[in-house]
Design a protein around this nucleic acid. Structure first.
Lengths: 225, 225
DNA sequence: GCAGGGATTGGAACGACGTTCCAGATATGA
DNA sequence: TCATATCTGGAACGTCGTTCCAATCCCTGC
């Protein structure tokens, strides 16, 4: 009860982990991961770094809390689905969209895959594998594959946001990457050459779902083994 | 020709990008990514940081070169295969093993997915999709899915190496993660509870191949769409 | 009410890092 | 042999995460 007393008595502008995380998310979203320094955070909260450290262990703790916040909100909004495949797609896309909107969160999750948000994703997806018809002994591998795939795309998206911030022409950038990849090697790279056009034009979100579908399809088929 | 002259005339202990990268890899492998500082590198090479900067743009350039080196060596040793599925598995496992041995390289690739080594992986895998029977319009998505999956696992492995260095008991650690994931949430997490035992016992490498197989299987089946 | 003491705050200070700068050494072409 | 471009070593700069501590706040027991 002394705990509750604190929370009500403190004046409204008192620091708290929640308020610090909120401020951190604002900095991360508007100015990127590199801009989240304890000095910037202290300025934004009109306090000193020591006060922040009273509520938060270190920078990693702060990033983890911010990423957890963003992902929990995204996962809470996933629409209820009846059909297993649609349900898994919805969960995966919720994560994709959250990380697309907050790339720093993607970077953190692929750096810290034991974050509780990853456990949540794992559970939510895993629960649909039985109704989907994935054999029992393939369910763990399937959920892991999906999680790893999602984290891989998360890292990729974070990297994209880092290298082409805001205004840059995405199509031109992809074109440049494709030609660099092709020219890197003296012998032509026939496959890259063949798909370069698709690489320039492709939609990340749509391609992401295609990957999810591949894994689900493969796990369903794997009745043998 | 003045270029060639330099290389032959300089005394054998002269600095060069190759020698710097070699020293960096040694530090990364023995002491981890955090230990690779320009001061440590300068000490190891018995020189100053300014001399290193003459050959290398910045820390990121150095990490990219080191990761490229390690992956190029791994990819060069992949055994020739006749059967498409075996060939793709061999490529994927070569990457997995390289990153298992050099986790810092995995961390770098998932942070910089446009690294030329990723292009190489993409090309090597993509070239086998036609013989494997993946429909033409699914090949780009399939190669992307595999690449993203591999990078996701790479990041995961890097994180593992960071959080459980050397002696730690892997089984106990996984157990701890599983129970934390389960207890995080008041409502039980039935799926996690069901697979917790597998999580404790599973073999990362074997599970990695299972994921690759899922994607390949799914891409082959996707004759519709 | 009031003194005591834990909870909380703000900002100075520390050590380490990536990077820059520059004076000197070295090797080559004229 | 000398002028010049290349290369070297280490000092110095600014910034970061983190620690430390004196000052302040607010609850508790008298």
């Amino acid at each position: 009860m002394s705990k509750r007393a604190h929370q009500t008595v403190r004046r409204t502008d008192a620091l708290s982990k929640a308020r610090i995380v909120e401020a951190a998310i604002e900095i991360l979203d508007t100015r990127g991961e590199a801009a989240l320094t304890f000095r910037a955070l202290a300025t934004q909260l009109a306090t000193g770094s020591g006060a922040i450290y009273w509520h938060i262990a270190d920078r990693n703790d702060l990033l983890a809390a911010a990423a957890g916040d963003v992902l929990a909100r995204a996962l809470a909004k996933v629409a209820k689905e009846e059909e297993p495949r649609a349900a898994i797609r919805a969960i995966a896309l919720a994560v994709f969209d959250a990380i697309d909107a907050h790339p720093w969160a993607g970077a953190h999750l692929s750096r810290e895959p034991w974050h509780s948000a990853v456990g949540e994703i794992f559970e939510r997806i895993g629960g649909w594998l039985q109704p989907l018809g994935v054999p029992v002994d393939a369910q763990f591998d399937c959920a892991s594959a999906l999680t790893n795939y999602i984290l891989g795309v998360a890292g990729q998206n974070a990297a994209n946001a880092r290298t082409l911030p805001g205004g840059t022409d995405r199509k031109a950038w992809l074109e440049a990457v494709a030609t660099r990849w092709i020219q890197d090697v003296p012998e032509a790279r026939p496959f890259l050459r063949r798909v370069a056009a698709q690489m320039r034009e492709h939609d990340d979100r749509q391609q992401f779902v295609a990957g999810v579908d591949f894994i689900l399809e493969g796990a369903c088929v794997k009745r043998n083994a």
